[in-house]
Amino acid sequence: MPHLFYGVVEGNRMLFDEREAHHMRVVRLKEGDTIETTDGEGFSYLCVIERLKKDGAIGTILKSEKKEEESLEKLKVMVPIGRWERTRLLIEKCVELGVDSILLHKFQRSQHDPNIEKAKIVVREAAKQCRRYLFPEIEIMKELSFSGKTITLDLYAQKSLLEVDPEGDLTIVVGPEGGFSEEERKILMSKTTMINLGRKILRFETAAILTVGYIALKKHKI
């Protein structure tokens, strides 16, 4: 399968950073080769590589095509900040499963701080791998504040995921490894619908992937 690259459009040129230039060299591309790129905004571009150096690359755009439109029904996921390898896995799967917005949140029992720049790189690489042209938004949310329909994954909830109506905008809240604090639980119970995934205690990334995958299938995002 041909590789997909990410670049920034400037007039009729596509600008690639050091990371993309390294990707080009790894797959043995050279100046004069034609590649497919995306701007992460839903477009595909056919480009000729005019300059390829260690610090970046420049291409000339030959053709552009709109490949993806924004979803009418938004799917958002609040991702807890845990150990990086587990948080990274969850971000990758959210991208692959068609999530529109990824919200990084440091819960009271989280032991790590969010790194938005590292997270953006994960989004980019995951989107390229699954050939997603419209990258999800990613941001840090400092407050437990929600608008629209929101569900929270919670071991002690009475309602099942199978009872959730997936229609319309939907936000999924995933708790941290250490669970919610009492203060957070009170806020979430007052502002969201608490959902139980079953009898087993799942790791936060497993619970999130299961839920996102189910909702994404219902919404025809994958």
Rank of each mutant, 00 (worst) to 15 (best):
M1N: 06
G7Y: 01
V8T: 13
E10S: 15
G11A: 00
R13K: 11
F16Q: 00
D17S: 05
E18L: 12
H22W: 09
M24T: 00
G32C: 01
D33R: 01
I35Q: 02
I35L: 08
T38V: 03
G40E: 02
E41H: 11
C47W: 05
V48I: 10
R51N: 15
K54L: 08
G59K: 04
T60K: 15
I61Q: 00
E65G: 11
E68G: 00
L72Q: 14
L72W: 15
E73Q: 10
K74V: 13
K76V: 07
V77D: 04
V79F: 12
P80V: 02
G82D: 05
R83K: 14
W84S: 02
W84H: 13
I91Q: 04
K93R: 09
C94A: 05
V95S: 03
G98K: 02
V99G: 00
D100G: 03
I102K: 01
I102C: 00
L103C: 11
H105E: 07
Q108E: 14
P114T: 02
I116P: 07
I116S: 12
I116C: 09
E117I: 10
K118N: 12
V122H: 04
A126L: 02
C130M: 05
R132Q: 08
R132D: 06
Y133S: 03
F135S: 05
I138A: 13
L144Q: 05
S145T: 13
F146L: 01
F146S: 06
S147L: 12
S147D: 15
I151F: 07
I151G: 01
T152K: 01
L153F: 09
A157H: 03
Q158F: 12
S160E: 06
L162E: 14
V164P: 08
D169Q: 02
L170Y: 03
L170E: 08
P176F: 07
L188N: 04
M189E: 15
M189G: 15
S190F: 11
T192R: 06
I195G: 11
L197N: 04
F204N: 11
T206V: 00
A207S: 12
A208Q: 10
I209T: 09
I209F: 06
L210C: 07
T211K: 02
I215S: 00
L217R: 13
K219Q: 09
